[in-house]
Design a protein around this nucleic acid. Structure first.
Lengths: 118, 118
DNA sequence: CTGTATCCCATACGATACTG
DNA sequence: CAGTATCGTATGGGATACAG
């Protein structure tokens, strides 16, 4: 019998006090869920993402993509055939396990806008 | 016909570029989902929350509770009958609309620990 | 018991210029 | 096209002491 839920959880070297905080540690922050949301249904190139997220800076987008890639949620494929560099980002199988959650996050946001917005 | 999803969303005075970022703006950060998670099934007092979250500081817990209260996700009830001050936090009806989402967030964290942890 | 007040720091994020 | 480099700022959050 476990007394209380004080077990520390670990993932990729980081410790979390709770399963909920582990998830937030991975998809938290201002942009990660937005990126994942846009990648649910299609692979996207760097500039396509920028157009879908006009308010993110190049630097931040780059950093967030790298972080998501490090956590194996997305994969980065480079097409080096011809000079105009082409890179496609898409969800990994692991990242796809997040799809229902990302969808729920987006849906709740929509709900709030519809029913509770000022 | 909407060209692209570039409509700005608003909630409580803040603007968000995407429904997913709106949700994250409200429940994001290191502790909010953890607090909400613990409040799913029971009202809890300040010190009970502290014991469930040993690694949060008093200041931070206080600030996050206040933020959640401002966003009307939780309510704070004070029992002033006798000197030992007693305060209970619980989900509002609006906060309860988040329960499935919080549960999904926690579940995905659990999944990761079970199947993908190092 | 339930918090506030101060102080401080790390990190996330933005702006802008520049590169392979 | 797909990023880096550099610099600056804002905010989230920790440590500790104290207050109603």
């Amino acid at each position: 019998m476990e007394s209380i839920s004080s077990k520390k959880l670990q993932f990729r070297g980081k410790e979390y006090p709770c399963c909920a905080s582990l998830t937030m540690g991975i998809i938290g922050g201002k942009w990660k869920t937005v990126i994942l949301f846009h990648l649910i249904n299609e692979k996207l190139r760097y500039n396509q993402l920028r157009k879908l997220m006009p308010s993110v800076t190049e630097r931040t987008l780059s950093l967030q993509l790298k972080a998501l890639e490090e956590d194996k949620l997305i994969k980065r494929k480079v097409y080096t055939t011809k000079p105009p560099l082409k890179v496609e980002y898409s969800l990994t199988d692991f990242g796809k396990t997040l799809v229902p959650l990302i969808q729920s996050i987006a849906d709740w946001g929509d709900l709030v806008v519809e029913k509770y917005a000022n």
